[in-house]
């Protein structure tokens, strides 16, 4: 199963949601798989921060559906967030974990999920997130995304994907600071709120 194909399937289901996603090849893949979601996606470069940030966003905007696109390496960096989600039970958070069993962005050394013992979905269920599933086919993935986007409790889909990056796709040019401004302005416009307002004097 290719991550890019999964992304296209998920992107087709998204409209008003907000997305926080992880580092590495998935950044450029999501940029191309979901062009209509570019302003609604925060592209981060932070191992272990993606799902916690998405949960913080979900806590602040409980009426809005939030999607976290995390990775095996990123989630393994901070498994504690699963216990926090288990206790907090956010009603508006779908977490997708791209589990390619490797640190792809630095050339592919294995993560702990590569050896057949570590099951991130099982860890999530043990942490109190009942709806946590490991999927290996595109149909399974799409069905769980559909269910997860309608769920009223936290929903985690661990997608076993190949360790390849879609070739010949357009690179995203912006850095984390520009990405933040784009995302914040999108949240402001769609929520009718001010997050980064004017100073007292200009």
């Amino acid at each position: 199963m290719k991550r890019f194909d999964c992304m296209k399937a998920l992107a087709a289901r998204l409209k008003d949601e907000l997305v926080i996603l992880s580092l590495g090849g998935s950044v450029d893949e999501w940029y191309n798989a979901a062009p209509h979601m570019r302003e609604a996606s925060l592209f981060q470069q932070q191992l272990g921060c993606v799902t916690p940030q998405a949960f913080g966003l979900a806590a602040g905007l409980p009426h809005r559906r939030i999607v976290s696109l995390d990775t095996d390496g990123g989630l393994l960096f901070n498994l504690g967030i699963l216990a926090t989600l288990g206790n907090e039970q956010p009603k508006n958070l779908l977490v997708v974990v791209w589990d390619n069993e490797q640190y792809l962005s630095i050339g592919g050394p294995p993560t702990h999920t590569a050896f057949g013992r570590v099951d991130l979905a099982a860890i999530a269920r043990g942490a109190g997130v009942e709806d946590a599933y490991l999927v290996r086919t595109l149909d399974e993935f799409d069905a769980h995304c559909k269910a997860g986007l309608a769920a009223q409790k936290p929903y985690i889909v661990v997608a076993k994907v190949s360790g390849t990056v879609q070739p010949d796709i357009r690179r995203k040019h912006s850095d984390g600071r520009e990405d933040k401004y784009i995302f914040v302005r999108h949240v402001e416009a769609t929520e009718g709120i001010t997050i980064m307002g004017p100073s007292e004097h200009n």
Partner: peptide
């Protein structure tokens, strides 16, 4: 983890 959650809350306004 708490710092990252707070960062997400900031993004929500």
């Amino acid at each position: 983890e708490g710092a990252a959650i707070c960062g997400g809350v900031f993004l929500s306004g």
